[in-house]
Design a protein around this nucleic acid. Structure first.
Lengths: 215, 215
DNA sequence: TGATGTGAAGCGGTTCACAGCC
DNA sequence: GGCTGTGAACCGCTTCACATCA
């Protein structure tokens, strides 16, 4: 077992492994080897072993991994046994869509508040989540024990929003605005930039057929 | 100018540079050096120069880059001067939210059709986009000249949908389902996995404060 | 002088290959 | 025999440092 710093790429893959194990578990399997996992889900067996070895010796030589045991181990590593309370900033189309997103509703993340600066939206309810004035973020965040912020505002406002939520003590932020943001030490920022993804597709389609690589 | 294979990381950054240049352009600036670009937008100047050098010599020594000229060059490289027609498979919450997403409506991507297998949804209109039976994908894709597919169905159906759209000749696919998908040669697949992003935040929050790296 | 474009060095992640264990 | 865990090799991306040019 390594004690070095864990790469984010490794933890990202743990998420993937977990979902693969869920599928195998649903099929009633009890054990799986890294090779079987790899061939079935288009992964690399050495990488699976190396990723898991960062956190302990979960496997049994000659056998593989016990699926249920490994699921629990990975869940625990990823902190999926702890609940988080999410505040979404931006009650526009994206923000309201996210507040209903099953990824939030079916996991250990609960959306407990929306925020906006538009007086016309403040006080609205999206599902059973209320829209608050962004000016009251600190107060509401404290009252509702929000520990994760989701930025779903237009790009020009994203940095301001990020600064505001980090000043309120939020340590984990997911950003959907297509803008490069600067975050202070000790805060985790994950950006999902659909613009980049779309333009990447655009670039691919602009290449002469067959001359470009594929994911 | 290199003629080697262009890394996807490079083209992703071109998207970022383009938006940075848009901002500078709006401020009325005419030129910018890689160093100024880097310090202002939290980027690396050497990387900017190297990325751009892959496609030509756009800069002027002693001066920097002409903003308007560079914007046009990058737009052209990314194929943003060509229009694309998007079909979204999955008319659930995510699919319908995406069909209204400004990223689609304000760029060279037009959403022209939605698809679903739920008879209760087929024939509906989301905005002015109709929902078709996924069984008719090939026919509608041809009729409406769809060249980009967006997968917004639950994970267990994602691979089937991907196979169907690639068989219909689609060469560029954006996937929102949290599942590792296998794609045939010559097709570009971009996956946006919110589950991974959320679990990454969960992992970070589960670490003892200060022991974990930050983006 | 000031900035680009680029070979070379550095670094981190992936893959290989095998010792060690069940 | 089969599979894990892991040092070593490999590979690709990033960063440095500087020759080159306006």
């Amino acid at each position: 077992m390594k004690v070095e710093k864990i790469s984010e790429l490794t933890t990202n893959r743990l998420s993937v492994y977990l979902r693969c194990l869920d599928e195998l578990s649903n099929e009633g399997l009890r054990t799986v080897s890294s090779r079987k996992l790899a061939t079935r889900f288009h992964l690399n067996s050495a990488q699976i072993r190396k990723d898991l070895a960062c956190f302990g010796e979960f496997g049994v030589r000659g056998v593989g991994y016990y699926i249920e045991d490994l699921r629990e181990q990975i869940s625990s590593i990823l902190g999926l046994d702890k609940n988080h309370r999410v505040g979404i900033i931006g009650a526009g189309r994206l923000g309201t869509a996210l507040s209903n997103y099953y990824g939030f509703t079916q996991t250990n993340f609960d959306v407990v508040a929306l925020f906006d600066s538009d007086a016309g939206k403040i006080g609205d309810k999206i599902g059973d989540v209320e829209v608050f004035d962004i000016k009251n973020f600190r107060k509401i965040a404290k009252r509702d024990r929000i520990d994760v912020a989701v930025i779903a505002v237009p790009a020009p406002y994203a940095q301001d929003v990020l600064d505001r939520v980090t000043k309120a003590g939020i340590k984990a932020v997911m950003n959907f605005a297509p803008a490069p943001l600067k975050v202070i030490e000790g805060v985790k920022l994950k950006s999902v930039d659909l613009t980049i993804s779309l333009e990447s597709l655009s670039y691919f389609l602009a290449q002469p057929a067959g001359s470009n690589g594929v994911d």
